[in-house]
Simulated assay, not measured.
Amino acid sequence: MVLGPFASVADLMARLPPDRVLSIEEQAQAERLLGDASHLIRMTAGYQQISRVDNDTVVLRGSRSLVLTLPQRPVLAVTAVAGLTAEQWEWDGGDRLTRLDGCVWRGATTVTYSHGLDEDEPAYQVARAIACDAVKRTLLNPTMIRSHQVDDFAETLADARASLLDGEAETIRQAFAGPKVSVTG
């Protein structure tokens, strides 16, 4: 499944200084960079997709326990577990499925569920803002020059890629990265 960027070029342009207009070439570059920044955000979020996905299908491996944890959050609905009736399992309203029939999750289990955030939700807006900020830094400083000075020592470094600042990465981890996917009993 290909997920799009959290922000559009129009979202980015709204955050640029009013006197900064993007050329056609810069708009194409910005679109690519917004996609890259969105992938970086998803990676920092523990590979959470963040964007809403309805009726996603995932194959999970059971390890002979009663509880199965779904990998993407927030879980909005669980519509089916292949090979089981609705009376044989229960969704806890969070990210866990529990067997109700006395059996354990074993082998491959195919689950159909909806997860993620709508674009108007505050946490999604945080991802949008961080993606725009990462790209804005690249566009406003295309050579990616960074300098550091302590007393009489100074150094200047060129960075070949856009990246998240430490505070942005921490915000993403706090907002989206949860416990590792596991099967518990």
Rank of each mutant, 00 (worst) to 15 (best):
W105M: 01
H148I: 06
N141E: 11
L100N: 12
G116N: 13
T138D: 13
P142H: 05
Y124M: 11
G102C: 09
P122F: 02
Y113F: 14
I145W: 02
N141G: 11
A129C: 12
H115T: 14
L140W: 02
A131L: 03
R128I: 04
A131R: 04
K136D: 01
R128P: 04
R128K: 15
T109G: 03
R128H: 03
A134I: 04
V104R: 11
R99H: 11
W105D: 04
Y124K: 07
H115D: 01
D120W: 09
V135I: 00
A134W: 03
G102W: 09
G107M: 12
R137D: 09
I145M: 00
C132T: 12
A131Q: 02
S147H: 00
V104N: 11
R146T: 05
C103W: 00
H148Y: 06
G116H: 13
Y124A: 12
I130S: 01
V126T: 12
I130F: 04
A127G: 05
R137A: 08
Y124N: 04
R128A: 07
N141T: 08
R146F: 03
M144I: 01
E119G: 15
P122E: 07
K136M: 08
R99N: 10
T109R: 09
S114V: 15
N141Y: 10
T110Y: 03
T109E: 07
D120T: 15
A131I: 04
L117N: 10
A134N: 05
Q125A: 14
D120M: 14
E121S: 15
G102P: 11
H115M: 11
A108S: 13
P122Q: 10
L117P: 13
T109K: 06
Q125W: 05
E121P: 06
N141I: 02
R128C: 13
A134S: 11
T110V: 09
S147F: 00
A127C: 09
S114N: 11
M144W: 03
W105C: 03
V126N: 05
N141P: 11
A108H: 13
H115I: 05
A108P: 13
T143Y: 00
W105S: 02
V126I: 09
H148S: 05
T110H: 04
T112E: 07
A123I: 07
E119A: 15
H148A: 05
A123N: 09
R137T: 01
Y124F: 13
T110I: 02
I145D: 01
T110F: 00
S114P: 05
R137I: 01
I145L: 04
A131D: 01
I145S: 00
G116S: 14
D133Q: 15
K136Y: 02
C132E: 06
L100E: 10
P142V: 10
T143P: 02
D101P: 01
E119S: 15
S114T: 15
G116R: 09
I130G: 02
N141W: 08
